[in-house]
Nucleic acid binder design. Structure first.
Lengths: 231, 231
DNA sequence: GCAAAAGTGTTAACTTTACACCCATGT
DNA sequence: ACATGGGTGTAAAGTTAACACTTTTGC
């Protein structure tokens, strides 16, 4: 079927999700392969139309649940893309969302309604995407890079228990620059937001590192009192 | 006419603009009085449906041009509000925009299509607004307060030529805290983004202050090279 | 015993903060 | 001559940046 033979849809809105994960020292995003025209066989951001009886935030949450079978995911609205000709089937604006997930905890649903398959791509290696999704991805990536410096969102990408080196590596990968180990530890511990656990790494062929977890409720309390996280 | 007798519209989208101005030492926003149901006679953010043949950014620009007859206005997308029941006439999501204007330069259009009148309100004194517009205003105000600290957008609210005291007062009003005069001047001049003019204030009953203007092209150049404005 | 990453302090450079008086102008 | 806001410098406190070696563990 040719693109210009596709049926026109009425004016409507969709959501698309830029889902970041961190695995094996690399920052990744989750893409789906489109099973249908338009852009059949292209990779695209997971997305869907918003149902009449759901909030747009709810639609984004639904996409994430369908893909990952989990619902405790960091999710925030990114930006709305509404150029007249962004969608070949009509005047469709899309509200883009930005999600951070703990890769290990989430098993990808092998078959979802809107896609043939879902796959993780390194952000350095994202192919040409359907629609204006490359533009959406770029904007999300920039948002992650700036937001991680003033909000403690990096923890959303790590397992519940993590080492300081893992955390540092996450920052180095996202900010694309090396960070001094001692200065990083001093700074991040000075916030008092990390809880040192009575537990160490296992099965590593070197000195095992202490594990930490992020104290989210403490962060929320401090934030109310005007505390500002600033890396 | 009762609200529940209003005709239902099909699924659609609108834009609403939070337009900030600074006048007589006060931060203001521009509101319109609604001439029609729903929320007839309530004050509301200027807004309108997006036409089928215009980008959403274009629709926001159109609202501003209709209200102010000018088009060189700072405008950025704020957030999209899409709760199912936010609009009594149907499933209408709205993309909110955030604008900063130089009050003196803009003459308000006394009569625009969508309103009976337009008026400036001090942000400390905003009445209950139609729809979810109070929520939109709150979000815009917070965005202004945080953004002004890391982007030189304050200048968009001042006349072309301004004194350092006017600039300082603008920051004090927006950030809701006093700032030390000497430290402020040292900091703001250290960026090298202000041009000292060969001109002084007129008609003031005290020593006349030097006038400055903001060097926008220099800021754009520095920004490309990684410079970051941080108050 | 060696490879690999964990863990740890000090100093110099820089930035931020606190603070008070004289100057120019109009009335 | 007085009222009003304009304009200016310094020192102490705090923060950031640069830098190298010892420890633990598995193989």
């Amino acid at each position: 079927m040719e693109i210009n033979e596709l049926p026109k849809l009425h004016s409507d809105f969709s959501v698309d999700c830029v889902i970041f994960g961190f695995d094996k020292g690399e920052l990744k995003i989750l893409l789906i392969e489109r099973a249908e025209e338009p852009f059949k066989n292209f990779m695209a951001l997971p997305g869907n139309f918003v149902y009449d009886n759901e909030d747009i935030d709810g639609a984004a949450g639904r996409i994430l649940r369908e893909l990952t079978s989990l619902s405790d995911i960091y999710l925030e609205q990114l930006y709305t893309f509404g150029e007249v000709n962004r969608h070949p089937q009509g005047r469709i604006i899309t509200v883009a969302y930005f999600a951070l997930i703990k890769v290990k905890k989430h098993i990808l649903n092998p078959q979802v309604a809107f896609a043939r398959k879902a796959e993780w791509y390194s952000v350095a290696d994202v192919p040409a995407l359907a629609f204006d999704h490359s533009k959406i991805f770029e904007k999300a990536y920039k948002r992650l890079q700036s937001k991680i410096r003033y909000q403690p969102i990096g923890f959303e990408l790590l397992p519940e228990k993590f080492t300081l080196s893992q955390l540092q590596q996450l920052y180095e990968v996202i900010l694309e620059k090396p960070i001094d180990k001692r200065n990083f530890r001093k700074k991040i511990l000075s916030f008092g937001l990390l809880v040192e656990l009575d537990e160490k790494q296992k099965n590593v062929s070197h000195r095992a590192a202490k594990l930490y977890k992020f104290n989210k409720s403490r962060y929320n309390n401090l934030k109310k009192m005007g505390f500002s996280f600033e890396l």
